[in-house]
């Protein structure tokens, strides 16, 4: 097991470096450079003052050095926990992230819990009662969940809230630890909207896994030795069908993060997503760079966890 974890870690580190380098290079694909964009935003004629400004910003951001040198400097700082200065907010990006990360994490956590709690039992029902109305209902719900773009579901929920309850997302965000009720009142809607989307594939996967597992010999053995149907379904079939569901969370981690960006925007949650969208539209590159880096870190860590859990649950994987 230890060897297996070590091997996964060895894959994790280069991917993270690779991702940070890629993002660094991609952000420098800009025609002209960042300094020019900041100064010439309005598209005005260039003047001597502006040219001086450009040179100043370039020196400030270290843009006058070769890209590789810039990257190594950035990486060195990042390893020491300094992700740079936000160009618009004029404060360290780590400060912004520390403030916003917990909110996005809460949203992601709630979404996953709600999605799994409602999708797995429905998937089981749909498999156990295959080809009955319950099965068809579950399948229709899951296919519609996959086809409704998450931003449309979100906007429709917001519309219903405004139309029927005169509810609008509050201007001021309340932390869960200050006032759990107030906080959940805002978080419950984005959670439900995204859980609906995420739950569709979980349902489908649970269903098809259950149908496959039920055909195995050990399930027949369990039945043959006279176990109650309930014990067969839950203890033998379900336990083994959940394995791929675990990996699934890893695969869809990326979509989950993307969905969180959209949910935060619709329901005015000041998290990582809103910060990223703001930074992109302000072309605040140091912030974009840092937030994307943290998102990649989260994504890779999630995948690492999933791999480790998977290896722990299924010994065959470890020795493959």
């Amino acid at each position: 097991m230890r060897k297996y974890i070590l091997r996964r870690l060895l894959l994790f580190v280069p991917s993270l470096f690779g991702a940070s380098l890629l993002i660094f290079v991609l952000l420098r694909l800009v025609p002209g450079d960042i300094a020019e964009i900041i100064v010439y935003q309005a598209g005005a004629e260039s003047s001597a003052i502006q040219q001086k400004q450009v040179a100043q910003i370039r020196a400030e951001l270290g843009l006058d050095r070769p890209v590789l040198v810039q990257y190594l400097a950035w990486l060195g700082n990042a390893l020491r926990g300094d992700l740079g200065q936000s160009y618009i907010q004029k404060r360290p990006v780590t400060e912004i992230i520390r403030e916003r990360f917990p909110r996005s994490l809460e949203l992601a956590f709630l979404t996953l819990v709600v999605a799994v709690v409602w999708a797995v039992p429905l998937g089981v029902v749909s498999a156990v009662r295959q080809n009955t109305w319950a099965d068809y209902l579950v399948r229709v719900v899951s296919i519609s969940g996959l086809s409704l773009p998450i931003f449309f579901t979100g906007v429709m929920i917001l519309w219903a809230l405004v139309r029927f309850f005169r509810w609008l997302p509050p201007f001021e965000f309340v932390s869960f630890f200050d006032d759990p009720a107030e906080n959940l009142k805002q978080m419950v809607w984005p959670t439900l909207a995204q859980a609906y989307y995420i739950s569709a594939p979980i349902m489908r996967l649970t269903r098809s896994q259950m149908l496959e597992v039920v055909r195995h010999d050990y399930v027949r053995t369990a039945r043959a030795k006279g176990l109650a149907e309930r014990a067969v379904v839950y203890r033998h079939a379900l336990a083994n069908s959940l394995l791929p569901v675990v990996t699934f969370v890893g695969w869809w981690g990326g979509r989950l993060l993307g969905g969180i960006v959209i949910m935060e925007i619709i329901f005015s949650v000041p998290g990582m997503g809103t910060a990223l969208v703001q930074a992109v539209s302000n072309r605040d590159y140091p912030t974009v760079q840092a937030i994307v880096f943290v998102m990649a870190l989260v994504f890779l860590t999630l995948n690492l966890f999933v791999d480790v859990i998977y290896g722990w649950l299924d010994p065959r994987i470890r020795y493959a």
Partner: peptide
């Protein structure tokens, strides 16, 4: 691997 380490919408 590195490209895939970046969540798509991000």
């Amino acid at each position: 691997d590195s490209l895939m380490a970046l969540p798509p919408i991000i």
